[in-house]
Design a protein around this nucleic acid. Structure first.
Lengths: 117, 117
DNA sequence: CCGTATCCCGGAGGATACTG
DNA sequence: CAGTATCCTCCGGGATACGG
C-alpha cells in the first residue's frame, strides 16, 4: 500500500496536480455516469434496462450521459430498426478498461459500510 | 481482467445497483473532493497548500469540502494556535484506504491521454 | 492565514408532453 | 420503446467583503 502512495507521489510530482486523475474525472463526470458504466460492465444493455437498473433517472438525463460517453469513446450505440425499436449500449474496449476503477470503488464501498453518512 | 468483471457481476447481483460503488461516490462527491484526497495522499498539508496545489477553488468551497470529508472520517483537521494561525489537514486511515481508487484513476488517465475530449 | 457571511449564477438534472 | 422538446428547480461553487 505504501508502494502505491509513493508511486502516486513519484508519478505526479512537478506536473499539473493529478493530471491523470483529472482526466478520469472528466470522463466519470456527473451524477449517473459511473453507475452507467457499472451496469454495462456486466454486458450490453438496452436503454430501458439501464434506466430501470439505476433509480430511474429522467430520460433526458440518461440520454445526455449516454451521448457524452459515446462521444468519449466509452460505449457504442446500436439501433435495431424494429418495431418497437431496440437500442443497445455496449462498452468499448476503452470503456471496459474502466473496470479496475469501478472494482476499487466497489471494494472500498463494501469495506466501509458507514461511509457517506 | 475478465476475473474482475465477473467478480463485479457476482458481488452485486440481486442487490440495489452498485451499492458499494454508490457509497464510494457519496464520499468522492463534488468537483474537488477527489483532488483534495489526492493531494493529501502525499502527506499532511495546510489549507493554503491545498488551495494553491489545486487550481485555487474558492475558500468557501474548499472549506465546505474539507468539512464534509472531516465529518465522513476521511481526514482530520488540526488547528495550531499560533499567529498567524496554521491549520493542517491529514488523511485518516480510512482516507488513506482510498489510495487504490486514486491510483486506478491516475493510471487510467495516463493511459488514455485523449479521453475527456 | 484561515476562515465565515452573503449574494449570486450556470448548468446538471427532473417533470411533463409529445413523436417515429 | 426510445427517444425529443420545453420548461423549471435546485444547489454546487464562485465573487466579494469582512472577522479572529
Amino acid at each position: 500500500m505504501e508502494t502505491i502512495v509513493s508511486e502516486l507521489l513519484e508519478r505526479s510530482a512537478g506536473r499539473p496536480a493529478g493530471c491523470g486523475v483529472e482526466r478520469t474525472l472528466k470522463v466519470l463526470d456527473g451524477k449517473w455516469t459511473t453507475l452507467i458504466v457499472r451496469e454495462l460492465l456486466t454486458g450490453p444493455k438496452r436503454f430501458g434496462e439501464i434506466r430501470s437498473a439505476l433509480s430511474s433517472p429522467s430520460a433526458k438525463t440518461l440520454t445526455d450521459r449516454l451521448r457524452a460517453l459515446e462521444h468519449q469513446g466509452i460505449l457504442t450505440r446500436t439501433v435495431y430498426a424494429e418495431v418497437p425499436p431496440r437500442v443497445v449500449y455496449e462498452l468499448t474496449e476503452q470503456g471496459h478498461s474502466l473496470s479496475g476503477i469501478l472494482h476499487a470503488m466497489l471494494v472500498w464501498g463494501e469495506q466501509h459500510p458507514d461511509a457517506g453518512g
